[in-house]
């Protein structure tokens, strides 16, 4: 159905043109803070998106959902039950393939006071869970997937969109942070079971405040371990960041120079933990 919902996600303006009704309530709850924002500034819509079932008989037989960026369809249809995650993944795809005015790292980003942390980590390291925890502990969410760096001043730019939680971490998040909105569970996706957590009000309200990155932390959750903090050499950190960049290869020489200057100004740390309380204490101690 046509919904024409327009909202800002950090530097981007998005128009959801068509969507499937059964997922609309979750969508509204996840983007509650963005949708109530006043968007007075006159600017163009960056991404017009539709996620909808194909017409005809396919609505009834093993129903599917299709993602459209304007009129372009970058993915094959996925099961209808995944409509909401498809919107999230599709919007990630739009940013990663269209927004080359930023250097983009595949990483989570969070900030408190003058501390801004970039957390690159492979899937399964507990990055999204830790991101959700820190956000609920009063840290400002930049993103749980894409950290944008603005070339003109080297600042990180918040997007403040829902956090993508997977499998076991959904249960943990649900019992530990009951005050945060969590969507329904989407089973059997290519990432297993997925649920989305709404960004905090603070994160969305301050999504226009860009910040200088101060720490690059590679988190690792190891059950039952004692907390461990190890300094990491900057050269390895640069390599980790650029190999996990969505668009480093588009940026040419300025891209590597920017990546190096970001790492140069940051402390680079490997962080192993098993309890949120340890993590809160450690992250809160990172003062600049």
């Amino acid at each position: 159905m046509r919904v024409n919902i327009s909202f800002n996600a950090g530097p981007f303006r998005i128009m959801l043109e068509e969507f499937e009704k059964p997922f609309l309530d979750d969508f509204h709850a996840l983007y509650k803070h963005q949708l109530t924002q006043q968007n007075s500034s006159q600017r163009l819509t960056d991404f017009r998106i539709s996620v909808k079932a194909p017409s005809g008989l396919r609505r009834y037989y093993r129903p599917q959902t299709c993602f459209y960026f304007d009129q372009f369809q970058p993915f094959y249809p996925l099961p209808y039950s995944q409509t909401l995650p498809v919107f999230e993944w599709g919007l990630n795809w739009c940013i990663a393939t269209q927004a080359h005015q930023f250097l983009q790292f595949h990483a989570a980003g969070l900030a408190k006071n003058n501390t801004m942390v970039i957390m690159p980590a492979p899937p399964g390291s507990g990055k999204s869970t830790l991101t959700a925890a820190l956000m609920n502990h009063g840290w400002r969410l930049f993103s749980d997937e894409i950290v944008l760096i603005r070339p003109s001043d080297g600042l990180a730019v918040p997007i403040a969109r829902p956090i993508n939680l997977k499998n076991n971490s959904i249960d943990i998040a649900e019992s530990t942070f009951p005050e945060s909105f969590l969507s329904q569970r989407f089973k059997d996706t290519h990432k297993g079971t997925v649920a989305l957590m709404a960004p905090s009000e603070l994160s969305v309200r301050n999504a226009h405040l860009c910040q200088k990155p101060t720490h690059i932390i590679f988190p690792k959750y190891v059950a039952g371990s004692a907390m461990q903090v190890t300094a990491m050499d900057r050269a390895s950190a640069v390599m980790e960041l650029v190999t996990n960049s969505f668009n480093y290869h588009m940026q040419g020489r300025p891209g590597i120079e920017l990546a190096v200057s970001v790492v140069d100004q940051c402390e680079c740390i490997q962080f192993t933990y098993s309890s949120f309380d340890d993590a809160y204490a450690y992250f809160d101690s990172l003062e600049v």
Partner: peptide, 18 residues
């Protein structure tokens, strides 16, 4: 040109240059 217009044009151009 408006900045958000240049962003889209320049992104397309970077892709082509690559």
């Amino acid at each position: 040109l408006p900045e958000d217009v240049v962003n889209h044009l320049e992104s397309g151009y970077k892709k082509a240059q690559r």
